[in-house]
Design a binder for these strands. Sequence first.
RNA 1: GUGGCUGUGGCGAAGUUGGUUAACGCACCGGAUUGUGGCUCCGGCACUCGAGGGUUCAAGUCCCUUCAGUCACCCCA
Length: 422
Amino acid sequence: MLTTRPRGTNDILPNEIDKWQRLEEVLRHVSRLYGYSEIRTPIFEHTELFQRGVGETTDIVEKEMYTFVDRGERSLTLRPEGTASTVRAYVENKLFAGPQPTKLFYLGPMFRYDRPQAGRYRQFHQYGVEVFGSRDPSIDAEVIAMAMDIYTRLGLKNLSVELNSVGCTKCRSVYRKELQKYLEKNKHKLCSTCQARYDRNPMRIFDCKNENCQALIEEAPTIADLLCNECRDHFNKVQEYLKALGIPFHLNPRLVRGLDYYVQTAFEIVAQGIGAQSSIGGGGRYDGLVEQCGGPATPGIGYAMGLERILLTLQKQGVMQEETKNIDVYIATLGEKAHLKGAVLAQQLRNKELLVEYDYLKRSLKAQLKAADRYQASFTIIIGEEELTNNQAVVRKMEDGSQACISFADMEKYLIDNIRKG
RNA sequence: GUGGCUGUGGCGAAGUUGGUUAACGCACCGGAUUGUGGCUCCGGCACUCGAGGGUUCAAGUCCCUUCAGUCACCCCA
């Protein structure tokens, strides 16, 4: 156990940190373009926040939370998603009193106690945005367009946007009853989980993979048929804006997202070929959430994307180009005095913005050159007794093995000139 | 929480119906080249064959338990 990381967690090693940083760069850049400011909230919150915010009946709250009691006997929970915390921060810090809408993004680890599999981990990373203060359908469309913009910039292909409206609390309860009425006579034929869903949240039966359940619900009325005028109008406008923005989408009346707070717009972005966990992002509108979390009635919409899944998709689609790392100068030394001189020279060259490595192991020259080769150094400076007395060093161009004797006084200029050129 | 597959040196892997000192490749370190890399050759590098228990004269090879990885279900990013 001492040398094993906890289940479902990952070390991001030096050889892969690069792609993470490049991904994060794109996310921050696009955030700026769309006018979002970063918010950093705690990794853990009062358990109650997620219970109320995410919803008591969701899988997240029922079986996936990392909850613990601290020394002050408070129940705390490692955040399983980002929206609840962001809403809490919005309310607590009275951001609603500032200019609206408020557009925020976050980036960081989330935690869910789930069985790990391809594209699913217990600690995973999400980037997400939240917009508070507007119920206008144009922002729904923009948020979806923004997500697609990010994927496109990253080079992802073959994605599909699944879009639905889950209605407001009013039309949803009407729909619920309709759906229950439709399924009533066949209720006993549903699988056991769907029988439970029948009472709690019959819309989730659409998600069931069981063929029998699928058959039973196939001809069921969809929410689209029963949206109230306001919701239907909103949904139509969202589609209108999406079309105008050139974002293709699939209407999916069966898309039901697993978090309780969604109303009206719900969407998911799906990638192919990364296994069963194909959703690389999703979101929707949550107009009642801020109020429910103790703030003023404020509309909101947001989405989150899973960074591991994005990286996985990038890899599967082969759009991940390796970044070559090489240094400018390797300093090889022989003998104690030369070693000291090398240390000083390394500092001097680094001050001139050169990437410099130096041998700390007092290895043989041969071994040092081998190291220089591994670092893909452009030049290796060799300093030994002889060079010290002549106040110069051998500078070897690694590419072709050509060497020159350069005085320490001219070293900086020589290297800078030659490296810039090459 | 449920199920399938897997678990041998840093990595990738051989390992016959259980039978002596557990292949091979890569990586790493050193030498051939007394102060010079990338190629070649030579050499070096394994106290637990995931862990624990059992069967047997004898187990990496059989049985049980457990842990981990992986994929899938549930659900989600």
